[in-house]
């Protein structure tokens, strides 16, 4: 379980996170939803210790993040983190060199699924393919948790469909996933839990199937209620 407890964060004078708390379970897809600029990426960075927080605590399986944690949890930012001059195969080699949890078999499988040529340079990839390589590099790691920042933004519809397909496949199975989005349409049926954020606070945290079952509302219905009230 990933526990985010009362996290606050200031950038200069701007309070970006004002006491955020939520949990994300292993085996579930948790979705952080918010109109742009509500601190979704900051939360992701904070979980990965890529930005310091002012207050609060973040626990991964009950412990604070440390170097060994990066074999258990990975983060796929909204832009690829490999050098542009690298070939896809170089990037995979880099991962293999540094991570014990790198699973080459799975990486090859995803290469095939996404129809990527591993001799292509990262700088020459299309936007959609860059997003796929980015996803591949994260998902080919045998980790418990995967964080993804806006995996669907700014790419073409077919790439989006392919990426959505990944979510329902064995590539995700039994892992805990946290994804951020400002566009829920594509993934409404894929997520277990929705967390609605606004201006640095959690407005509502709910299980999507439960809200459909108990209140007969879609995620968008709830968003409308919460954001427009």
């Amino acid at each position: 379980m990933i526990e985010v407890k009362g996290v606050t964060k200031k950038f200069g004078r701007k309070q970006v996170l004002k006491g955020i708390s939520f949990t994300a379970e292993k085996g579930e897809i948790t979705c952080l939803i918010g109109i742009n600029g509500v601190g979704k990426t900051t939360i992701m960075n904070a979980i990965m210790a890529l930005t310091p927080i002012n207050n609060g605590q973040i626990l991964i399986n009950g412990e604070e993040i440390h170097k060994g944690s990066y074999e258990k949890i990975t983060f796929i930012p909204d832009a690829i983190t490999m050098l542009p001059q690298m070939k896809i195969s170089d990037a995979m080699q880099f991962m293999d060199d540094f991570y014990d949890c790198w699973n080459q078999k799975r990486a090859d499988e995803m290469l095939g699924f996404f129809k990527l040529d591993k001799n292509e340079r990262i700088s020459s990839l299309s936007k959609g393919n860059t997003a796929k390589v980015n996803l591949l590099l994260g998902l080919a790691m045998d980790v418990d948790y995967v964080l993804m920042d806006e995996p669907f933004s700014g790419i073409d519809i077919f790439s989006r469909e392919q990426i959505a397909e990944v979510f329902t496949s064995h590539l995700i199975e039994d892992r805990g996933v946290i994804i951020t989005t400002h566009e829920i349409n594509d993934i409404e049926h894929l997520i277990d839990k929705a967390i609605l954020l606004n201006e640095g606070v959690v407005l509502k945290e709910f299980n999507t199937e439960e809200i459909r079952e108990n209140e007969g509302k879609s995620v968008i219905d709830v968003m409308r209620e919460v954001y427009q009230s």
């Binding site: 085996g27 579930e28 959505a164 397909e165 496949s169 064995h170 199975e173 894929l190 277990d192």
Partner: peptide, 17 residues
């Protein structure tokens, strides 16, 4: 349940349920 989730593009936990 995995195949079903994949075919229907739904969450595997939902398929399981």
């Amino acid at each position: 349940r995995r195949e079903l989730a994949n075919k229907l593009k739904i969450n595997p936990n939902t398929a399981q349920r």
